[in-house]
């Protein structure tokens, strides 16, 4: 695994571009090893996806970065400085959204955000615009205790933006939100990133990660499986774009000759559609060859490698790395 990381990845980058870094971070809860010698680097200005199955140690890692959980060993560096309990100033530059978010039930969003503005030393006059940003203006004077889970999450997103931090660390930012708000939050993340912020977020919605992230880290059982761009990971795993072809001639049977066509690596069929994995440069010639063989093609499209595929493959075969 290490050799591959070196070939593909982050070690070539200069360290000045790294804003959040963990070095050999380890956390043991009694006899459970939650995070195992985790080393990772989040670079300035990127959107970094932090992935792993449930219980992989994502939240514990994020909590260690924020100083909520003490590492058993290893370090966290933010903007190149090792964090410690005595110097909490580094947190001023981080907008944080925890996984299990909760505020004070007896306060309204305005009162809640006012309080966090005070804590972060930010001007309270931004509160109305923060509330508008996440679409809560109609509930601004209701108590947070009466809010749905999604609305509390939105208050959390607003809270994270207080003080214009340059780094955002978000644990499942779209968890618990319905589709409408997922888009609001996603667009917000993109907008923040376009303005130059670095965003690290964990998620289990892989399509979302694929849509947003420049690079991802996949961890399992607390240990790093891979950290790289989605393209590099897909390439390494030999996950190729696939050709999706619809033909009423198929009727659930895959013609034997398909696999013998030049460039075809794999093929499968279901009812009247088939999926062909092939060399990306030979897509068109494969399609032509199929038509020349007399198969009537009604529709076709290319399916790009999905992170989901990579993810499943990675977790299944991680011993290979």
């Amino acid at each position: 695994m290490k050799e591959w990381l070196r070939n593909y990845g982050w070690m070539k980058m200069s360290d000045s571009s790294v804003v959040v870094e963990t070095r050999n971070l380890t956390k043991k809860f009694r006899d459970v090893l939650a995070v195992d010698d985790l080393t990772m680097k989040v670079r300035k200005g990127e959107i970094y996806g932090f992935l792993g199955p449930n219980g992989a140690g994502k939240s514990t890692t994020i909590k260690m970065i924020m100083g909520l959980v003490r590492p058993t060993s290893g370090h966290v560096l933010v903007n190149g400085k090792t964090t410690n309990d005595h110097d909490v100033e580094y947190r001023r530059d981080i907008g944080f959204l925890p996984e299990r978010i909760s505020f004070y039930d007896n306060l309204t969003p305005v009162q809640t955000l006012n309080f966090f503005c005070e804590l972060r030393g930010a001007d309270k006059s931004i509160v109305p615009s923060l509330i508008k940003d996440v679409g809560l203006e109609n509930a601004a004077n209701r108590k947070v205790g009466t809010f749905s889970k999604g609305m509390v999450q939105l208050v959390g997103v607003a809270q994270a933006m207080i003080g214009d931090p340059s780094i955002f660390i978000l644990d499942e930012p779209t968890g618990g939100l319905d589709a409408r708000w997922v888009k609001v939050v996603r667009d917000k993340l993109k907008a923040l990133n376009e303005k130059g912020s670095t965003i690290m977020f964990s998620s289990h919605i892989l399509s979302e990660v694929q849509m947003l992230c420049d690079r991802v880290a996949v961890i399992d059982n607390g240990a790093m499986v891979v950290e790289d761009t989605i393209e590099n990971i897909s390439e390494h795993l030999h996950i190729r774009p696939r050709l999706w072809i619809q033909s009423s001639d198929l009727k659930g049977n895959l013609p034997g000759w398909i696999r013998n066509l030049d460039g075809v690596e794999d093929a499968s069929v279901k009812d009247d559609t088939m999926l062909i994995t092939c060399d990306p440069s030979l897509k068109l010639s494969v399609l032509n060859a199929i038509q020349e063989k007399g198969l009537k093609v009604q529709d076709f499209k290319t399916i790009d490698p999905s992170l989901e595929e990579a993810f499943v493959k990675l977790l299944r075969n991680k011993e290979d790395y």
């Binding site: 924020m66 100083g67 947190r91 925890p98 966090f116 804590l119 959390g156």
Partner: peptide, 8 residues
């Protein structure tokens, strides 16, 4: 957790 993730 949000309070303690603030600069305090």
């Amino acid at each position: 957790s949000i309070v303690l993730a603030s600069p305090i």
